[in-house]
Design a protein around this nucleic acid. Structure first.
Lengths: 348, 348
DNA sequence: GACTGGCACTCACCGTCGTTGAGTGCCAGC
DNA sequence: GCTGGCACTCAACGACGGTGAGTGCCAGTC
């Protein structure tokens, strides 16, 4: 229907206008600024319908309309076109990420870049260990019953754990149990995805020479427990200063719950856990089940496809900002950055 | 003089009162709440003098007085007694830090603990590499001209760098240059303080077999450059949500400059660089040369004495909060936590 | 000389009260 | 189904006066 169509255009215009001006938008302003071909009175009627359906709301009686979470959702799903990045932005991405050395550097640059591009808080998850393969395992003796195990993955991530181990009692004289353990572990695990590592532990325990079994058991247990379990992944956050950008406008209550949610990395990690590299995920206001984020929106996407067909991501990255944000622009930025990071990690 | 003495008591009372109530404090309230033995009129005279000398100021004519930065400085230097920690706080420290496994865990717990104890933003610096000794160096080949060097220090810190190296051309057949390099590096550096490492590089270059010189040069250069140079140290920040605690009261302008300063870790690291383990350093308001911190105070101290006599610290830790903070309490908390962390690191 | 009570004065804060204007809903007419 | 017109609502703003905490100053007392 023609006037159904127009109603949606009105909604789109409201969202766009509100996002750019931060003022409740009235029928008159809409008629003037957007070429909708009808008068303000007609727009008023449309707005009344949109309000009834829950897409927009009035802060108070004699004010303009503001999109609701539902309105933003509809806008994101149905009304927004992909906004291509400007040439300047593309150049910024390349300039920022080129010349990165190790993984920490790549992720650090990425998070700064994303914060700068979107003027919001940026988050990036370290490549999930479970989906990475073991490149090398290093064992260093810290004390007689204390080992440091360093794990290096094919994504360049380096993770270490100190482990208490039982004393080696019946080692053949002249042997070096730690060196043997190192050889054994590398032989067993190198090349394996960490998710598969737990399967190999049993084999390893059978084939290991008896005097090493205690060590192998302790080390394997820690590897499986703390490294393979999801949720133990690390998160990098940047650009928190952007939260204070709009003064009290963007987050009327207080920044506190948001800052708390960001510090409780688990919260954001769970969000990131759901992402695929192909589609950008948007979670708007009340859709976030965590209380601290109900006033904010999260735009996230996976980076670094594992399967080639892109079913599983190495990790997630994204931004957190006010519900009143430039969704098309931010979605484009998040996707573009994720693509670059994925390439960068695949190369190394 | 007797009434000089009283004037200082008045200043102390003003600071204490203002810190706890956040209201400008008037002569009448002072006379009522503190037993100064004189009437409010006399206090008024004292306050006039204190204001003339720059220790306090009035937000507006008919309001009470508020301490200036200079007033806080005097309070910290001359008027505040050490406030012993409560038993509950001591228990909290032990409970929090006991059971920490590796370095990351210790520092992470510390920063959370300190943020919770002081209800401010807590920061902790990773143990300075230059003052740590090498426990182990590990070399892993990532690609034909790319090595990953992992450094493990005696404080448990693990640091890695990817390094581009020249190709090894004239290696004897059957040899393993990487393994040789590893042996060589460990032989030369293990046990040495990183600050001394640069001295050993020249020796190492002379004694190394010719076909390894290229590798040794590249790796040593990176070690010296990026690891020994100060300022490259990492910082852990926690409790940023506490900044938003007092609403707009504590930081009238905006949180933004503060959050920016905290993200620019360099700023805080420089502050931490100056700390000794023995004395708690307090930097108040305008005393901070970085612009973003001029509305805040920093309380910091070094942890983990190196020399035994405690001249040099392994790193610094501290808090960042409003100038209107509980200095005695926070100084006590910072010092106590630093002492525990120092012990913890010395044990491992 | 130091302290005190008293007093006039200042001024932020707060609630009240019109005024203004953007925005709305509704209705009659095209 | 759209439009112009009209009466209505109500947040925002500024003016205004009362209130009270707080001050500075002064004359008087110990």
């Amino acid at each position: 229907m023609a006037h159904d169509e127009r109603r949606l255009q009105v909604l789109r215009a409201i969202v766009q206008d509100y996002v750019s001006t931060n003022d409740p938008v009235g029928s008159k302003a809409l008629a003037a600024r957007y070429d909708l071909g009808v008068s303000s009175a007609t727009i008023r009627n449309d707005m009344a319908v949109l309000e009834e359906e829950g897409y927009i709301t009035q802060p108070h009686t004699s004010a303009g309309r503001v999109p609701t979470d539902k309105g933003y959702r509809f806008f994101v799903d149905r009304l927004s076109a992909v906004k291509p990045l400007s040439a300047a932005e593309k150049r910024a991405i390349e300039r920022f990420l080129d010349g990165a050395l190790d993984l920490d550097d790549v992720l650090g640059r990425t998070v700064r870049l994303l914060a700068q591009l979107t003027r919001n808080v940026a988050v990036i998850q370290y490549p999930t260990l479970a989906r990475s393969a073991v490149r090398h395992l290093e064992v260093v003796q810290l004390a007689s019953t204390r080992l440091l195990v360093v794990l290096i993955t094919d994504t360049g991530r380096v993770e270490q754990r100190a482990i208490e181990v039982p004393p080696v009692l019946d080692a053949p004289t002249g042997s070096d149990p730690v060196a043997e353990l190192r050889t054994l572990l590398n032989g067993a695990f190198v090349g394996a995805k960490l998710a598969e590592a737990s399967l190999k532990v049993a084999d390893l325990l059978d084939t290991a020479p008896p005097h090493l079994r205690g060590l192998v058991a302790a080390v394997s247990a820690t590897l499986v427990e703390t490294l393979v379990e999801p949720g133990e992944d690390r998160l990098l956050v940047g650009g928190t200063a952007n939260l204070a950008r709009g003064g009290a406008l963007d987050f009327p209550g207080s920044l506190r719950p948001l800052l708390e949610a960001l510090e409780e990395q688990v919260v954001v990690l769970r969000l990131m856990g759901e992402v695929a590299p192909s589609t950008v995920l948007v979670s708007i206001g009340e859709e976030n089940e965590h209380e601290g984020l109900t006033g904010a929106s999260v735009v996230s996407v996976g980076y670094g496809s594992v399967g080639g067909t892109g079913d599983l991501a190495l990790g997630g990255l994204g931004i957190v900002g006010p519900t009143r944000m430039d969704y098309p622009g931010n979605m484009a930025a998040v996707r573009a950055v994720a693509r670059y990071v994925g390439q960068l990690l695949a190369e190394s």
